[in-house]
């Protein structure tokens, strides 16, 4: 309300921040002419591809280092070392390596995702109750049986936490990636809007980012509810 009043009275100039009414009209316009849906599709696609690639890499590395001591020596030390590098900082390097097309954007998303999943899945595997592993051994489970029936299910809560973090990171990486250079996607819309002082479009894009983030979080929560219903945790009162 206050925002609308300030905008209408001219105190809040449209170049600083557009009025809610304008934003709503712009949003409707962007949706009806197909700009926003197609931009969203491109962005969501980038996130999905990055998520899958980074997810596979992160989980594979976590399994390698979580399940074997040799893997731990080889993988974990390296990953922990790389962890201190701010991942956004590698954008220039990715551009030099991969050009300015889709590849560096997806690589950036995949990198952020892989790190979060790796750390949480690895911690999840190493956090499995040794007593349960022992019980599994006494029940006659072999190495593979222990991994399948005891270690991996035990690491699942950690993996789900990792998935949530990595989704948040994926959106962040998307914003960074698309703001550097893009000729489509939500980031491109925003860049274009910046050129023309279209604060209304920028706000619409921000809202879309937020909504997509919320949607992703909702999906993970649903997944958690389905997969972790066995967990004896406090669920609030």
């Amino acid at each position: 309300m206050l925002w609308q009043v300030l905008s209408a009275s001219g105190v809040l100039h449209p170049d600083v921040l557009a009025s809610p009414g304008t934003i709503a009209r712009t949003a409707a316009g962007l949706v009806s002419d197909g700009t926003l849906p197609s931009a969203m599709l491109v962005s969501v696609q980038r996130v999905l591809v990055g998520l899958v690639l980074g997810g596979v890499a992160g989980v594979a590395l976590a399994l390698a280092s979580g399940l074997s001591r040799l893997g731990e020596d080889l993988v974990d030390a390296t990953v922990q070392m790389l962890r201190s590098i701010p991942w956004v900082g590698v954008i220039p390097l990715f551009i030099i390596w991969l050009g300015i097309g889709e590849a560096p954007k997806i690589a950036l998303i995949a990198l952020g995702v892989a790190f979060h999943l790796y750390l949480n899945v690895y911690a999840g595997i190493r956090g499995v109750d040794a007593q349960l592993v022992e019980a599994g051994t006494s029940l006659g489970l072999g190495r593979w049986g222990l991994i399948r029936h005891v270690v991996l299910p035990g690491a699942l809560p950690g993996a789900m936490t990792g998935l949530r973090y990595s989704l948040a990171t994926a959106w962040l990486a998307l914003v960074f990636g698309e703001s550097v250079n893009a000729d489509d996607g939500i980031g491109f819309l925003m860049n274009q809007a910046r050129e023309f002082f279209r604060t209304d479009v920028i706000v619409v894009c921000l809202i879309v980012y937020a909504l997509l983030g919320l949607l992703a979080d909702f999906l993970v929560r649903t997944l958690e509810r389905l997969l972790l219903q066995w967990r004896p945790t406090f669920t609030g009162q």
């Binding site: 007593q131 019980a135 029936h149 967990r231």
Partner: peptide, 23 residues
Amino acid sequence: AVAFQAPRLMPWKKVWRNVLLGL
């Protein structure tokens, strides 16, 4: 077969699957 002081059931498996585990 062993029964421990703590039941050590796998929390992610329903009771009957716990019973069959490792057979």
